[in-house]
Design a binder for these strands. Structure first.
Length: 114
DNA sequence: GCCCTACATCAAC
DNA sequence: GTTGATGTAGGGC
């Protein structure tokens, strides 16, 4: 990488974790926050909202802990958010009414780190 | 350099 | 359904 984006170590760490999420799997902001050593899922949302690495970073695989798809492309509960649902459906994630139906679809970092 | 505000959230009542 | 909290980033002075 000759040209690096003007991001902080924190943002870089978040994107690295998101890129580790395999297709057909999703994770939550809280789980992602813990994976990067942060106790605030809001910081994750801020980093993903900027997402200078999109679509290199599958930020659409990050949903809320409430099993809702959360936001996408700088919007929350908008037209872009609806597109996020379609992306997950295309990857084999069972989403209905903007909510995740299969809880086993969650991706566990600890399980992979094992 | 310091202060304040916003956030794609989470948890509690 | 509303409120408080938690950490990071950005803008103003």
């Amino acid at each position: 990488m000759t040209t690096q984006e003007p991001i902080t170590a924190f943002q870089r760490r978040v994107y690295e974790r998101v890129k580790e999420i395999p297709p057909g799997r999703v994770t939550t902001y809280a789980a992602l926050a813990r994976a990067v050593g942060c106790a605030s899922p809001q910081a994750i949302g801020q980093a993903l909202r900027r997402n200078p690495f999109a679509p290199r970073v599958p930020c659409h695989r990050v949903i809320r802990s409430d099993r809702s798809i959360g936001g996408f492309n700088g919007q929350e509960g908008g037209a872009e958010t609806s597109r996020k649902e379609a992306l997950l459906l295309a990857e084999g994630v069972d989403i209905r009414g903007g909510r995740l139906h299969d809880a086993h679809t969650f991706f566990d970092y600890q399980q992979e780190a094992g």
